[in-house]
Design a protein around this nucleic acid. Structure first.
Lengths: 344, 344
DNA sequence: TTTAGCACTCGAATTGTTTGAGTGCTAACA
DNA sequence: TGTTAGCACTCAAACAATTCGAGTGCTAAA
């Protein structure tokens, strides 16, 4: 549909705009070494590109800036190849080289390195608790009516909450019950716990434990673990490095979104399909993110998708570099996790 | 040293400036109902106040703004009395009315309500771990070489970390040891744990446990709990509501301080004396906070100081209101905690 | 001691002008 | 027929000049 020349011009416009942040005019373009025709010719092509919706003017006699459609085409078809520098690769590698015992730390560090390398805001989501498996649960009485319930997963994650224990339940029974559960439920994915208890363990419990019902209620509380994955942010204020975000009034909504975290969480959850995904501007369907792009990638253990890492930046983002970095970190993180898991 | 009239003028200047953010001129002042003398008189007084260092001009023919010295005097001697509205009081009360099981949640909610009521950034530093006492420890093996060490305190707080277990240590011994420790150390303040173990428990352990040394090393790891109190922020971006912080370039350093958190942590630690304390501008001795004031208050359980809550805002802060709110929240929080503790 | 009055200052807002980078269109050229 | 040179036009941004108003300090009179 677009001629080769139009593609070339579109690509150079977007490359230049990403670099400079300034609208690109025909004369500027004609001086580029990739381009060998006159500014008048370029003007004609630009008029066509604009009519097709790939670029826009900021005002009637201004140069052109990419439209969302333009960025979309660019990301899908025109990305200039990008290679990481040796230093970048080493920085990434060094993050995963240290021995780390807690899986979450690894994810958190990934977020950190992403924002360090790109200067954008980065987010790491993961691992979903429902994926991880029960290692041990424990109920530790605090007062007569309260206790701390602790669940340890095979990933080394510890989840805890304070629960109320009805006075009708006695401590010994509670302990016995926990013991039975630990024997039977080791290695069961957290998400299956409740079901498993009902189908397989309920009978045993009923036989061994007096006062079965109230204890079970207590237990249900315990297992009602927040399903939400932990989310790690890094470089939350990096947005302010971008000139397009220098007016505080205009970034306010975006700031709120980042501070709240929950909208971002939803966005990330939506895009859990494998591989790298790019959402440009209003594709995010979130008011306040009109001028942002979100690039996500999944990481996995073996073949099992595990979590998501992402970069949030302006629509005028260095897509090529970000995608390359994100890919690399996702790969290295996946490898580290896979290795980590094999040692389990 | 200052005449009554000078005090009046100083107070009205600062009140007005806090409200409007604009330099205050003699004519504006003379129109206030509190003030019954002419603008010329005021000009003379203002010249004196300026010479004494309580107010400054922004340029040669501008109105006056308070200097740090001025704010300091205002805070120490001129605060207009302030009463909370019924709604405010109720909002605060409602936070502490719900039954809450985890002490930390209570502290976190205090931070939230502080920033809601004042529109500034608020910070709650809360209970120092070293203050809290051991309820139970637990070591849960993860793999052959790793385990999760869990420490539960009497406040319902759970601290955990993954540790390495030398292969020379066998699981049974580890468990035996943990049992002994739990028997002997219940209720011991975390900060005294190590000492207590050496003086009182070491002998017992040596008698009962083979391979005493390597296990002890493992244990030391476990007990090496981060000493830092948890810090809760609320309204991190509220700074941007202030017109004096509308230029992103100038807030950059402040933003970094808030995002890093650790500088703030240090500031809060410094000021752990009882009661409300106000640090104005450069009194904070932290570059980036020249235009900020930090107001801190301590909360306590019974008579024992327990933690700190604070408000961070521009030097042009509503001191009177903030101090009143902070006081109220500190009191209510202390009361709630004291009650909470009595139920223990 | 207080105040009215006056000359002066300076920031902010308003207006006009210039500059430069851009446009579209047309006509000439290969 | 596609390309290009040239021209008239547009607009934002930068700059200078002007005005306006809120402020000052100082002096002299009440």
């Amino acid at each position: 549909m677009l001629t080769d020349r139009q593609l070339l011009i579109l690509q150079v416009i977007i490359d230049d705009f990403i670099r400079s942040g300034q609208p690109v005019g025909s004369r500027t373009l004609s001086k580029k070494h990739q381009i060998s025709f006159s500014s008048a010719t370029i003007r004609n092509e630009m008029a066509d590109l604009e009519e097709l919706g790939y670029i826009e003017k900021t005002h009637i006699s201004s140069g052109r800036v990419p439209s969302e459609k333009g960025y979309r085409y660019y990301v899908d078809h025109l990305l200039p190849p990008q290679r990481l520098t040796r230093t970048d690769i080493q920085k990434i590698r060094s993050v995963f080289a240290e021995r780390i015992y807690e899986l979450e730390k690894l994810v958190q560090k990934s977020a950190q390195i992403l924002s360090d390398l790109t200067n954008y805001t980065s987010i790491a989501l993961g691992p979903a608790f429902k994926e991880s498996k029960l290692k041990r649960m424990q109920i530790i009485p605090l007062t007569e009516q309260t206790a701390v319930a602790i669940v340890v997963t095979d990933t080394g994650h510890v989840e805890n909450r304070v629960i109320t224990v009805p006075t009708t339940v006695n401590a010994g029974d509670l302990e016995k019950m926990v013991n039975i559960l630990n024997e039977r439920l080791n290695g069961v994915p957290l998400i299956d716990l409740k079901e498993k208890i009902e189908t397989e363990v309920a009978d045993v419990l009923r036989r061994h434990i007096r006062n079965y019902d109230s204890i079970l209620n207590t237990l249900i509380d315990t297992l009602d673990i927040p399903e939400e994955e932990k989310m790690f942010f890094a470089g939350k204020t990096n947005m302010f490095n971008q000139p397009e975000f220098s007016d505080i009034q205009k970034v306010r909504p975006l700031l709120n979104i980042i501070e709240q975290e929950k909208d971002i969480y939803r966005l990330l959850r939506k895009q859990s399909q494998k591989g790298v995904r790019v959402s440009i501007g209003r594709e995010n369907e979130l008011s306040g993110m009109e001028n942002c792009s979100l690039i996500t990638a999944t990481y996995s253990i073996g073949d099992e998708p595990f979590g998501t890492i992402a970069i949030l930046g302006p629509t005028r983002m260095e897509y090529s570099r970000v995608i390359t970095v994100l890919n690399r970190v996702a790969t290295d993180l996946s490898a580290a996790l896979t290795k980590w898991y094999q040692n389990q």
